[in-house]
Structure formats: C-alpha cells, structure tokens
Design a protein around this nucleic acid. Structure first.
Lengths: 343, 343
DNA sequence: TTGTACGCGTTATCAT
DNA sequence: ATGATAACGCGTACAA
C-alpha cells in the first residue's frame, strides 16, 4: 500500500510550482515553457503520477463521468447499446456509471438521485416514462440529458437519439401489405412515449395509404415491462378475425413476444408472418430466420455520446437536438403471402 | 441552475455544527442526541440536501464505487452478469462504473489505470489474462479485486467466483459418454486461465474414469477473442476421425461457435451432439434446442458483489476466498447416441 | 458537541 | 510571458 504521489510531489520533484504541473496536465490552460513542460512530463512519468478524479470533480463541480440509465441489460438491444456507449465514451476519456431501472420508475427515480450526488456531467437514458420532474431537476443542476431509443414528450430541452421510427414502422408494414396481408397487427410501446406513438403513426399511414381500414383491435401499445408483449401476441391470435401478420415494434418486448410465438408453436410464416424490431444475434438461427428492422446500434451510441460529451465540454448550441438515424429492413424467412385461414 | 446545499448550509439552518450533521448522515459514526438528530434530519429533508460523492471520496480516499471490467456486453452471459451485478450493487448503495476490454489486454490495462484514478473501492472483473503487474498494483493501492468466471493463476490474494468448472465439464462429458460417444471434442478457454484448465481437467477425468483414451487433437484451448471458437469447431469437423460429440466450454466463445455450427448446416444431433456452457435466451428457440450447462448468473453476481463490498466496508478475513457455485446441467435435444459415420 | 485541519487538483491573484 | 502562492470546494475525523 504505497501512497500515491500528488500534484505537489510532482511539482517538488521537478522544481516547479503546482500551477505549472496543472497547466501541463490540462494542455491549453496556460503557457508553459517547452523545456519546463518536458521536465514535468518526465517527472510525471517517473513518479507514475495520476491526478485523482475525485479532486478534480470536487473543484470543478463535475468530472468526466456520465450516467447510463438503461432498462435492463438482459435485453440484447440494451446490452449492445451499453457495450457501444461504454466504448465510445472510453475513446473520449469519459467513464460510464451504469444503472438499470428494470422498467421500474421508482428505481429510476433513485438512480437519478444518485446520479445527482455523483455530479455526473451528463446522462444517457432509456426513460421509463415517469419521473418527469426528477429529470427536470437533473437538467436544472446542469446535467445534460440524452434520451436514446425512447423519449418522454413532457420533457423539453432533451436531446433525443433514435431511429426514424415512423418510417421504419411504415416500411415494415408496407412490406407485409405488398405480400397481400390486410390484417396486420402491431405490438408497440406505450403511447405515452413519443417513440411508441411514432411507430404506430407509421403503421397507420402505411395502411391508410393503400386504403386498408385501421382496426384498433390490432394495435397493442403494451408496457415495456415483463411479458406484456407476449400476452398481447397471445391475445391477438385469440381474436375472432385473427391477424395474418404481425409487426413487433416494441424494442423492449421483442424477446418475450417472439419466444411466446415460437413456444406456442405458431407456424411461421404460414399461419403468421412476423417482422421484429432489433436484430438480435439469434434471429438468424431460429427457423425460419426472422425478418427484422435492424437498428444501427453503433450509430445510436456514437451520437448519444457525442451529444453528452459535446455539451459537457464545449459549446453545442443550447438548443435540444433530435437525431434520427436510418434503420435497415432486412428481409428473411418469416414473411410470406397470407395463407389459408386455420382454426 | 440552483446551487446545491452543502453540509454547512444544513448545519447553519439547524443551528448545529457540521460534525453533527456528518454524524447524522453516517449513522453509527458517533453519538447524536435524539432530539438533535430529529432536527437535523428534518433540515436535511427540507433543504433537500444530498452529500456529494466526490467530497466524500476525496476525504476518505475511496467512495462507494466499484469497477466492473467485462470482456464484452455483446455476449449475453456477460450482459446478464452486468445486469445482476449492477442490481446487487445498487441494493447496497454502491455504484458501478462499467468498462469493457473487448478481450484486448491493452485496453484492459488502460481501464485499470482509470480505475486507479477513480479510486474505486473494488473491482469485479473477467480478466483477459495479461496485465498481471497492473492487477497487483491495483491491489497494492488497496483496491479489492474479485475475478468472476475466469481467473489468472499468477495473481494471488484475489477472490474468485465461478462455477465448479471441473465438475461441470465432467458432468457434461459423462452425459455424452453415457449416450455411447467416445470421440468427444472439447472447446475451452486458454490453458493460461485456471478456469480453462479446470474444465479440461474435468473433461479428462471423466474420460479416464471410463477408460476412454484422451486424444489431444480433440481438445482446443482457444482464445476468448473473435471467432477462434468457431474456427476450432470447423477444424474439429475436418478431422479425419471426426468427433461425434462436442462440448463447448468456453463461455466467451459459445455464441460464435454455435452460430458457425448452425450455419454450416451440421446436422444436430445426428452428425454431432453438442453441449454448451451458458444458457443463452435463444438456446431453446433453435432446432434442436440445446443441452446446456446453466451457470447461475445471479449467484455469481451476488457473491462477487458480496465479496467486494464486504472487503471494502468492514472486515472479511484478509485471506483470499474462492467461491464455487454449482452449475446445472439441462438436457435438451442436442444430444443423442452417436449416429452412423457420414462423409 | 464543536471547531478545524485535511485531502488534492484547480484557478485566480500576484510577482518576476 | 512565466512562475509562485493561496484560496476554494465539501465531507470527514480528530482534538478541544
């Protein structure tokens, strides 16, 4: 247990003042004679000096740390997102404290409080939908908030990074329409999220464009949590006039929904054509391989990090920004023309 | 942007000294008159005071933060592990800074350095295998290190949490032996990791126990990174006397290996019986569903967090501890008696 | 219980 | 232009 060297130790060893050392550390913060800088750098290396994050954070009010608040790492979409965010942040010298809400707004609230104590510079999150005032408080204290994938409409001045939800849902729907389907169901997120609404809108407009009646029964805005998606699927298939195609547009529910579909032995695509959002690693391994709307997770991550870090450090226009990246529709084997009606 | 209240604000508002407030905050740190405590608590709530983590960290030398260094969140095993670790930590009021190594020891080294700056109280990690001295330095500074799933043998005084690797591999192997297989291949981790060795040992002893000759060609200790696992599988199947069964015991490689197997159209279990470590969410969705060794991820996480937090806070015996939890063998459809030999 | 020095990097002030 | 010095931010811990 050796004692770590402080900035003053370095100053002493290099025969300079702490200011100089500080300037050397933070590049452009002041003039330093090239010769002196040389000596200081050498000394720093020699003593193996590393400035303590806590000290800097204390004096500056905020360090190079961001909070990443996700629903649940069990979902491969969020897991990959976390992976990329951590990576992108690392590249910019920023650390990530990870928190999960498990879709519980109460847990989310607690996380936000903690993030406040930690005086993080920014937060990237998939909000549960509640805690509007908590989020506001966070912004009041100067923490930059970026919502990714989902977003809350009640909150202003937040950057939002997502795919073109409207278009993507429309594309998926059109693909099914082209195959001849007319009874197309949609499982999406709660309509309290702008994301959920956008996907429903895209679906709607695709249907209306070709004059297909929109049946409210076929639209299920289910909560993110638990097996709501799976249950919705079951319910849809129990309908008297059951759908022949299904779009699962709820990122957080794709997994449970698809599993239910497979496990209940629904014949795909004969009985039901399906398209899901998110290209999970196993979508190609199942039979049939699933047609998906692939979200460019790396782009979502990069833009999110760019935004928080950008605002933290220098000056990005104070105006909130909405970044929408394009999703890619990947056609595989889970869609076909509507088959004969089955019991 | 309101200014956050400090401990002194609270002290002033409550007509007490900062010390008292501090004591109230940290429960058992000293005597406080019940009446006074009452007043202070009220004031804290009123001013909405929250102690700044950075300040505490600075004065104490370490805060309630741990580092979680994983290989790669893209692997569902690590993702779930992260999910549980974050959850368990949260329950104990501990924050988690997440870092990924992408199996690159160079990246790992940098992460360790950063963790040092952050003066974390402990680290939970799946080490890449290198950076032995870096890990030591971390310990020297008083950071508790817990390895999960894998471990490095060169390092002493580290807690290790894993499944009973030896037994688990033996069980899997025996299952295949019982089915009549004799040419059983094993894809495991590098033998530089104690985990990798243990799994190979278990496999070996199971074979020897029933008098089956151990063929070194059938044992592949592949690196964690990339498609090494998949390539090993391909190589094994190209063998003149190809195996009729395969155990994929390398947590980090299961995904790519299995995918390769499926994509190259190897008929399972007719051509090849397989058992994999880790019960990924999709193992039941593929055809046939895979027989797996299920690692109790929640237990791994709980023990890991218990260990770090335990050492951080109070006094756990200074002696390093090795926790081995039992894994569960789940038999599904990917194993059968060895079929006829095919071209 | 209270007062206060302490930990450490930052930054503003002042001197060269 | 450079370098030196001291104050600052805030919770903790020890002495009074």
């Amino acid at each position: 247990m050796k004692k770590a060297p402080t900035i003053r130790d370095v100053a002493a060893a290099a025969n300079v003042s702490v200011s100089v050392v500080s300037r050397v550390i933070n590049e452009g913060s002041g003039p330093v004679a090239p010769a002196t800088r040389e000596k200081v750098v050498a000394t720093i290396a020699e003593l193996n000096f590393r400035p303590r994050a806590a000290a800097r954070e204390l004096s500056q009010g905020q360090g190079l740390t961001i909070g990443l608040v996700l629903a649940d790492l069990t979902n491969p979409f969020f897991a990959s997102l976390a992976d990329r965010v951590v990576w992108e942040a690392r590249g910019r010298g920023v650390q990530v404290v990870l928190m999960t809400t498990q879709e519980d707004s109460h847990v989310e609230a607690q996380s936000l409080a903690t993030l406040l104590d930690r005086s993080v510079g920014g937060v990237i999150a998939t909000p549960t939908g509640g805690n509007v005032d908590q989020w506001k408080r966070l912004q009041d204290v100067g923490v930059d908030v970026v919502f990714v994938d989902r977003s809350i409409s009640e909150l202003e001045n937040v950057d939002v990074v997502s795919i073109q939800n409207n278009d993507s849902a429309a594309t998926a729907t059109e693909h099914l329409l082209d195959l001849g389907h007319t009874r197309i169901a949609l499982i999406s997120g709660p309509s309290s999220t702008s994301t959920g609404r956008a996907r429903v809108d895209g679906y709607r407009s695709a249907l209306e464009r070709v004059g297909v009646q929109v049946d409210p029964d076929l639209i299920r805005g289910v909560p993110f949590r638990g097996d709501a998606g799976a249950d919705a699927a079951t319910a849809l298939l129990a309908l008297p006039d059951r759908p022949t195609a299904l779009v699962v547009a709820n990122t957080a529910q794709v997994q449970s929904t698809v599993r239910r579909l497979f496990q209940t032995g629904v014949r795909i695509p004969d009985e039901l054509s399906i398209i899901v959002f998110d290209d999970n690693p196993w979508t190609q391994l199942v039979t049939p391989p699933l047609s998906v709307v692939r979200q460019p997770i790396d782009l979502l991550a990069r833009h999110s990090v760019d935004l928080v870090v950008g605002r933290m450090g220098g000056k990005l226009p104070r105006q909130a920004r909405t970044v929408e990246v394009q999703a890619e529709f990947v056609s595989r084997g889970s869609c076909s023309a509507p088959g004969r009606v089955l019991g």
